[in-house]
Design a protein around this nucleic acid. Sequence first.
DNA 1: CAACAAAGCGCG
DNA 2: AAAGCGCGCTTTGTTG
Length: 456
Amino acid sequence: MFHEGTLALSQVEHNGMRIDTKYLGRTIKKLDKKIAQLSNEMKESAECRRVYKTWRKRYGVKTNLGSHEQLGRVLFDDLKIKGKGTTKSGRWKSDKDALEDIDLPFVKKYLEAEKLKKARSTYLGGILREVDSNGFLHPVFNLHTVATYRSSVSDPNTQNIPIRDTYVASLVRPCFISRSPSGQICEHDFSGIEVRVSGCYNKDPQLLTYIRDKTTDMHRDMAMECYLLELNQVTKEARYCAKNKFVFPEFYGDWYLSCANSLWMAIDRMQLKTAQGVSLKEHLRRKGIKRLGSLDPDVRPVPGTFVHHLQTVEKRFWEDRFAVYSQWKVDWWEAFLKKGYFDTYTGFRCGGLLDRKQCVNYPFQGSAFHCLLWCLIRVQKMLRKYRMRTVLIGQIHDSLLSDVAKGELKDYTEIAHKIMTVDLKKHWRWIIVPMEVDCEVAPCGRSWLEKEKYNG
DNA sequence: CAACAAAGCGCG
DNA sequence: AAAGCGCGCTTTGTTG
């Protein structure tokens, strides 16, 4: 599969992604201006003066407003703001999490500037550096670099193009356009494939039911438990938080203390409410949970705190709800210790120095990607067989990116959908759950940003 | 100047 | 006992 995959991905490299170079140049200029403007405000506006003066006092001509190490010293040493601890080497933590609750205009501007600088240098700058004279990008796909036997992409990396922050996405994604004014950027995405594949390994009956029975909803149920909600009180946002701040972290080996913290912070940051409009802080207070509680691992959780509550949620999660999954992890790890390796269902052997979490996470991270890779190979064969003009232009772990030629959308999406949901399952009988695919398509000649849900 | 480590941040 | 997994890329700051 990797031999065929290498050939297929080299074709994807050759195809390349069309770049809107005019937009790129324009947006770089615009961002440079915005970044300079922000930097100016940090130095000269009245509301920022106190912080900037303190900074100058400490660093003089060495003042660098892009240095997070300097920022940490200024805020947490000089201005006595309460920090969020230090890194391993003893410097103040100064990432987004440590800064975003500080109510200073200077810090708000700093965070905004850092965000724009990231967009400017990593993304727009990276694209500009790599785009060829025809306006095409040809990123490099690797199958030999990743410990889990996933893929990686470089020069530039097109597997981490911004999407979650809608503003940054709206700056970067318009760069990626169809190669023809009548063509369409199209993306097929396996939904929840890592969870599905993990179900194939651990065969936890509860997890399999969640996957197979569409009337059930794991993330909704965990939102109910985490925030003590009734079914009719769960909002989309609460479900989102349960999914991304509890379920996935727990599946990958996180623990209740850090989950409790991020779920709790999310209430204010995302202004979480019940469906009826009551703030979740207030809601929890009515249920007897009045504060977060200590995040110190050595302090025993106190009843009436959110930390204590999450401890019980975690216990039920692993000991009652997903007990079979829990036991599978124990068995898989012990088998690895005994043999020194494990084999994935897709035919890969992982050995060497692995810790417990890596050992129980690698098999489905790799296997999930192999599902996508197998489909990519097949889709490309079909495109060639039917002499279609649609081309594959990328792959993002569980999704397939294409530039669909005029008049081929219906055929292409049918082919891709069938391969991903039907043929794949026939090829690998270990896939004992349904595979589901979301398809998104951009209007003719428009960019990757503008993809929207497509229904046959 | 190059090489490297650390910290940070984007994605699945 | 430790306290999410996997990547690539950038800037800062140090070292030789």
